[in-house]
Each structure stands twice: as C-alpha cells, then as structure tokens.
Write a protein that binds this DNA or RNA. Sequence first.
DNA 1: CACGGCCATTCCGTATCATTGAC
DNA 2: CGTCAATGATACGGAATGGCCGT
Length: 900
Amino acid sequence: MSSSEDEMPLARGRRKPNGRAVLPGKADPVEDESMDIDATDGKVSKVINGTSSKRKAAMKPAIKDEDDDEESDSAPLSKRRRTTVNGTKKQLVDSDDEDDIPLSSSRRRSTKSMKEDSESDFEDDDDVPLQKLAKDKKNTEKPTPKAAKATPKGKQAAKATPKTQSATKRKPKDETPSDASDSDIPIAKQRKTASAKKSKAVKNEEDSEEPTPAKAKKGKGKAEAPAPKKAAKGKAKKEEEAEEGASPDGEEQTDEYKWWLAEQNDGNQKWETLQHSGVMFPPPYELLPKHIKMKYDGTPITLAPEAEEVAGFMAALLEAPQASDKKFLENFFADWKTVLKETGGAKDKDGKTVKIQSYDKCDFRPMFEHFTALKEAKKAMSAAEKKEAKAEREKIEEPYQYCQWDGRKEKVGNFRVEPPGLFRGRGEHPKRGMYKKRVYPEQITLNIGKEATVPPPPKGHKWGNIVHNQTASWLAMWTENINGNVKYVMLAVTSSLKGQSDFKKYEKARELKKHIEKIRREYTQELSDKQTMVRQRATAIYLIDKFALRAGNEKGEDEADTVGCCSLRYEHVTLEEPNLVHFKFLGKDSIQFDQVYTVDKQVFKNLRIFKKAPKGPGDDLFDRIQTKHINEWFKDHMPGLSAKVFRTYNASWTMQQELSKMKNVGTVMEKHAAYNEANKKVAILCNHQRTKSKMHDSQMEKKMYEIKALMYQKWRLKQMILNLEPKLKKKKPEYFKPDEEIDDEDWIKEHQQWLIEEEKKKIEKKFAKDNEKLVANGEKEMKASELNSRLSVLSDMKKDFAKENKSKKVEAAGKSPSVEKFEEQIAKIDDKIQVKTGMMKDKENTSEVSLGTSKINYIDPRLSVVFCKKFGVPLERIFPKTLRDKFKWAIESVDENWEF
DNA sequence: CACGGCCATTCCGTATCATTGAC
DNA sequence: CGTCAATGATACGGAATGGCCGT
C-alpha cells in the first residue's frame, strides 16, 4: 500500500515534514540538468562526469561530495535533494544508468533521454557562446558561498540612510509643539496654499459634489465630514482631537512625537524606558442556562464548562460553511473528545455518563438557537443601552490603549489576548477546526522597562515571565497551541515606531531605483547562464520582479499547500508558444493566482527546460533553488533587498507612472475615480483579491432588473407623449424607440405580470395595516370585499397592459397630462438609470479586486499626498481617518513636487 | 524570533426606503 | 388627494479590527 502511495504523482502528501516535495522513486533531476548543460561543452562535461560519478558513489550521504566537487554551484543543491529523498534505493539503481539520468523512475521515463533534451535546448540557445563558458565558469566560482555572505553585514550601518538624516536637519529632537492644535496648523497652512494655488474651479466642484451638504443637514458637525473649506477644516480638526484626548485636560495629546523631524535612533535598541498595562483577557466562560443543553443521540447532556464552551464554538458555526467541511468537523470532534475526556465526559440528566462517539449524533441546535436569541437580544437593545455598554467596554480597555514608550505616549495595537475558539485557517489548512485554547496569564511573557511597575496579573494568577528586552518592540507575547506560533502584542500602526519602519520600507524601495537597472541587466544575463542553478535563480528573480511574486518558502505537511515563486511546482505553470505563460496556483492565504503573462523569450525557454520530463506534477519547477539562494543574490546586489522590496518598489513605481499620466481636469469625483483606477492596477499587480460576495451576482441581477424596469417605465412615458402628440414620432423616431434591453415582448409581458404582483402585494400589505390600526382604535375591521374592491385596480392594470400590448400604444395617464410633464419624468428616470448603471459598473469593476491592501501596504503614501495636493482632491477622499493617522509622516513631509 | 502583510469579519455611519403628518 | 418634509427603520458599503499567513 505504501508503495502504491509512493507512486502517486500528487504533490500533496508526498511532502516531507520539511516541506520538500519528494520525488518518489526518482533521483534528482537537477543534476542531470546541469550535466546536460555542461555537456554542451566537451571540456566541461568532463568535469561533470567526474562529478556525476562521484555523486553516484556518494549518493545517499550526499553532503560530502560538495567539498571536492569542482562544480561547486550545483553541489549544494544535490545535497539538499539527497537528504530528503526517500526512495534512496531506487535512486541508486537508477543512477547506475549510463546516461546519468537518475530520474528513471519507471513511472515516467521519457523515451528521449533527458540529456538529449537538455542538450538540444541549450544548443539552440545561442545566448551562451562557447567561448564564454570558460569565463563564466570563473564567474560562477567567484561568488561562492562565504565570501559573498560577508557583504550584507554593512546593512545595519547603511540602514540609517542619508535621506533620513536630511529630514532630520529641519528640527532638533526635543522640539515639542506647544499645544495639540499646533500640530495641525502646518497642515492647514499647506492646505490653504495648495488649494489657493490650485484652480478655483476645482474648489467649486468640491463644494457641489461633496457629500457634505447631506451630512450637514443631518446635523453632524463631525470633523470627519469632508469639508474642504479651510476654515471649517481647522475648527473641525480641533474638535476631533479634543474628543480623542479622552482625558479632561487636553494636555496629553500635545507632545505628539514627530519622529520624522527628529534624530533617527540607529542601532538595535528600540527603547530606553517602557511602561504599559499588560494584556487584556477575554471574559471567562459563562455557563449556559441550565435548560439549554445539546443532545447526543437524542439525549440532552450536561458538560463540564470547558467541554461546553468548545461545543458552543461548534454550535455557533452550525450554519456556517465550516459545518459542512469534513476536515473541520473531524478536527473539532477529535479535540472536543479530548476535552471531554479530560473533564469527565458528558452526563445525562441522571448523572450517567453518555459516551460521545459520533459527530453525527451530536445535536448542537439548542445551543445554536440560544446564541441566535442572544444575538438578537443584543441587536434589539435600545440605543441608550448600546451606548452604555460601549462606554463600559471602553472604560475597561482604557488603560491598555496606550503605553509609555521612552516617556512618550504611544498607542498599543492588539492588547487583547486572542480568545479561545476553533482554528479557522485559510483555504484547506490541515488544522482547521482544531481547538484553540484559552490563554492564561501564566503563559504570557511581558516585556517591560526595568524601572516600570509591572501591571498586576488577574487575581489568583501570575505572569509567566517578565523580561526587559530593549531590542524587542513587543510588549507581551505568548505561544499559541495550534501551530506553536508566538503571538505578540505590539504598538499600533499609527505609532511612531511603526511609522518609522513604514518610512524605512519605502525608502528601501526607493533605494532599489538606483540599482534596478543593474539588477535587471544582471539577471537577464544570467537567464542564459550555463548552470541550471544560476538560470533557475535568474528566472525566479525575473518572475519576482515582473509579476510581483512572493519568495515562496518551503512549507510543512501541517500547513496549507500554498506556494510562492521558489516553491512553484510543475503543474502551476503551463506554457504556450511562443512565449505565453499561464500561472495558476494558490498563493499566500490560499488566494488563487491565475494569470497569463507574456514573458521574455529566454524565460520561456528556461521554464520549458525546468519542466522537462521526467518532471511531472508534484515536482518543483525550481528544483535547485530555495528562497535563501535568491535572497543571497539579492543581498549581494543591494543591502536589505528582498522579494518584498520588489513588490513595494514595483507597486509604488506603477502608481507613480499612473498618476503622472493624469491631467488636472475633471471633477473631484472623476479624479478620485482615476486614482482608484491606478490603485486598481497596483492591486492587480500584487494580486490582491477579494472574494466576490455570495450576494454579488444576485445583487447585480437585481440591479439590472431595476434598470430594465426603469427603461420600461421610460418607454411607456414616451408612448404617452405620442399619445398626446402623435406627430412627434416622425420627427424623432430614434427617441421613441425602446431601449434594446427591453425590446423583447416576452420580457415585457413577464415584467407586466411582475408589476401587477408587486402592486397586489402592496395593496394587501396596506389593507392589513389599515385593519390593524382600526382594531387598535377599537373599530371594526374592513371586510374582505373592501380588499377585493381595492384589488380591482389590478384587473384594470391587466386590461391596460393587454390593450397596450395589442395596440402598441399607451394612453396618457395622470391628471392633466402634458408632454412637458412626461419629459420631466423621463429626465428623472434617465438620471436614475445613469446612476444605477454607474454603480453597477463600479461594483463589477472592483468586485474581485481589493484596493485596500495595496493602499495600506505598498503604495508610498507620499504619492497619494502629492496627488491630492496637485489635483486639489481632499485627502479625506483617499485616506480615511486611520490611514491619515498612519501616514501622518507622509502627509506632513512632502510638497507637491515630491517623487517616488 | 520578530514583524509585516492580508483577507474576512465586524462595526458603524450613511443612503435609502417607508411612514407619518402637515399643507 | 397629492406633495413634501420630517422621521424612523433598514439595507448597504466602507472603515476598523482580528487573527491567520509568510518571510
């Protein structure tokens, strides 16, 4: 049985715990490839043959041959491979093959030897002139391991970029604004000057377009209202901040730390002093009321608190998709049974133990219904009650919200300990459904200043550990039980610390600008390197650069099967002559990556080689490289360079290109739409998707129907005009044609039916309501005959429609009908149609693209700020409040000439 | 180990619809 | 009786948050 499993071509399940895909009964394709390559040249092939024989000899121990291997580059790879291969025996046999095709694995041996294949591939490959080989050889030897590695050491020093310093000179470190409102004066000023410079026309538009009026009408004076007016702005801002400074003395917000005006602290130390309140725990579990009991095999059962709690987690999901996910249920059930065992199991009403053996016999419904009722009760709370509850919550949270970081008040991010629950995972995570346990203070380590007072642990508990790690930015941590991952409590994204690293991230990306040409030149050249490893590396880097792929570390058996660049497998890439590549795989978070790209010829050729038989589904495309190899290469070309930097760089670069194409014309709304369009390009580049909501299609259909209904109404009105002025038809025949969407008799008839139905419902509803009222007033209900008479309009409608359908004419309706009146109504309908189609398009357009992620993480915020300044678009249109906070550094530090 | 990225979910304000009352 | 404004209820969609994922 196990042998048959070995033969399964599927990747999944054949991965070793370390994640390497294992080729069952197959030796390393890699080496063959390199042999082949080298074989193109007589001289080299000699070397290779040496290697190969060595390899054969040292097949399983593998590692050793590296040292004496002359072709150092390929050796490490084979080493890696060897260590993970399970079918050692087979390989050994295979490797006896004279052809040096260890692959052999009878399962998919190609008739043509791999050697031949590759040879031909590289032969028609004139990118690698023979004479060059000697030189290349040298090159490849040079950058061997250790020597290169030393370089990135300068990284730390280089990190404090000159840019940072230049920003520094503006103001000395300890400069503190005199009061809170002070901080927004500069903005106001900038804004003023900017908008003054910008066209007045724009401002007028703003006034007319902004949703402000509506809000104002509502009497909400909130600063949030996009009121572009300078004066209004300043005032509003102040209010806002006053509100935020919860404490009565508006003092505390005053010395907001403008790190971008300050000296950068270099080195590893993150703080000097640190005081905080620790973490907030979820409320303890409260037992369900006695009468709420789940059933097993029809018997109501009593559970220990923890077992009941876990059961409740499942009960809550009864109508969620998880409830029909076998794996989820299986994992849940296993963990739940463990809890049951530990807590004395389930008892019936007489205290007799009930054995829980089958999920199918569990009935969580009573619990589910109880939860649903609770939810509704909560929803039904009066506004005042809700407000009170909220205030109470906030009061409890208050101490955790902020910490003192080097004496400054900084916002804390996730101070709440994650509550227990069932692990959800993304995609087909093998651990989904497992019980995520409650975290107790004893498991928590606090990181806090030596001088600080340690926050008291919850009563009856103590903290697991207290440390004073000044090189760490976390305030607290614990280890979660599902994957054994460490969870950290850190500062909020709006904190100065995070702001600084955000800033550094973008500066790093901008630094790449200076190197990108050289980098591209070099990897392009390496695309035709004679060594497979180098080629694979170059190809991978090409993909990372062009298509913004992630690096793609190996993953373990107990993680979802998702891939990035280096972990792409055979089946993820399909080639289509002459140079189209179809990528289809699950990326981070199990998000589908499904794109067809045109690639460089050489890249296409390389991919074809990397897919050569005997590789098949389940095999690594880049079998000779790992992320560490590309990372080493990156670091050699620029300190701190990584695949992520490419993503940031390309995203921001794309945005800059798109924005610079734009002209300062049109309304604010149009400009905003254009911005979103650019944003969308970036999102697509980064493959930021969102799942179309389940409702999406039906909502679309509904909208479409509404639009058609409007068109029909319009058409009828036009017919009525004709009814009044038949002559008009000759004058403007186009005008009186029905929209083609509704040019369909069957549809019209259906629609008429629908209209009648709707009308009927409406009348019945009204009747019922009227009756209710009468009863409430102690009067008698109306009789059914009244309803019938009211419903008689329906038959009139029917008749009218029938008549219309026959005569193709519509009688003018309404009192004192006139052409003008009809035209007015038509205009209104046209407006509605316009609006609706616009909304539809927009919705469809962004239904599967998520703009947020790239806006938050990849597009240099300074680009957006510049955009707003240049085009007079209120920043609030682009950045909602939290983003304005997060990007304060960007908002306050650029003028409109700034470039990425 | 530590940190940033990233989608789904939840939260919350606004738009829209329905209802009522005044004119 | 129709219209319009005011008000209330609800649906909707963007913003904030949460917690899982990858490097």
